[in-house]
């Protein structure tokens, strides 16, 4: 087995007295699609934010390609250049057109020539059905379109890992499909992904591994067939009963 792209050991995060992550161990290998499930407040989002160094951790070690990035002297921007992140609330920049949203980081951070970055962004927008929205501003788009644009923005920098934080949670059910379709396409293309999600059917279908988080711990981890259909832990069963229909 190859060494993991991202590896977390004994991750701990607290807000005041509240322990949000309590000793998380997680390995993400290339082409993995890891789904984090669990009730809200179980630490899914915080874990993703910690992996992207958006939060300072209180203990543990995070490694990217075997190099510790939780060291205070590691430049977090160098780490974030390698990682793409998409948020629940899209977080597109409202003052920029869709195309400008997508080319901002490639041009400013990665030094891609502007015409090259625009060509690549347009190609991706085209592929995901947003070709005619390139010059529109985010607020003119539907939620589904905005989230797809946010995904394209994350993909434009050519990240090695994609972190998706409940990216369909703010969408109408009928718009969820178009966004998940895009994630599925990326998964099939071999993109390494970690996603916090409530879409159990999607997790079952796309995930290579599912982690059930409970009170800041990974209570159970395994292939979706195991965790989602025959969980070992009683708490996992309880959770699945609540979220799965029937």
């Amino acid at each position: 087995m190859t060494s993991p792209v991202i590896s977390a050991r004994g991750l701990r995060k607290t807000y005041g007295d509240r322990v949000v992550l309590d000793g998380i161990d997680l390995d993400i290998h290339q082409h993995d699609v890891v789904c984090l499930i669990g009730s809200s407040g179980s630490g899914k989002s915080t874990l993703l934010r910690c992996l992207d160094l958006l939060e300072e951790i209180d203990d543990g070690v995070i490694e990217l390609d075997g190099r510790e990035v939780s060291d205070p002297h590691v430049d977090p921007r160098a780490v974030r250049r390698e990682i793409g992140m998409v948020f629940q609330a899209y977080n597109l920049f409202p003052h920029l057109s869709v195309l400008a949203n997508c080319t901002l980081a490639p041009v400013r951070v990665h030094g891609t020539p502007a015409d090259e970055a625009a060509a690549r962004a347009l190609e991706l927008l085209e592929r995901f059905g947003l070709g005619d929205k390139a010059d529109a501003h985010p607020d003119q788009l539907s939620g589904g379109q905005q989230q797809r644009a946010a995904l394209v923005r994350a993909l434009c920098t050519g990240p090695r890992v994609l972190l998706l934080d409940e990216i369909t949670a703010a969408l109408d059910p009928e718009l969820v499909g178009e966004v998940l379709e895009m994630v599925r396409a990326e998964a099939e293309a071999g993109m390494t992904m970690v996603l916090a999600t409530h879409e159990m059917a999607f997790a079952r279908e796309v995930a290579t591994s599912v982690c059930f988080l409970d009170r800041g711990r990974i209570l159970e981890q395994g292939p979706p067939g195991e965790v989602l259909t025959a969980p070992r832990e009683e708490r996992t069963r309880q959770f699945l009963r609540r979220v799965l229909p029937g």
């Binding site: 701990r12 607290t14 322990v19 309590d22 203990d59 543990g60 060291d71 205070p72 002297h73």
Partner: peptide
């Protein structure tokens, strides 16, 4: 777990580095 937890050696070291910085 909040009571029983004590920082790992790595974390203690990290805090020392942050303090020095």
């Amino acid at each position: 777990s909040g009571v029983t937890w004590s920082p790992s050696e790595r974390e203690v070291e990290r805090r020392r580095v942050r303090r020095r910085d």
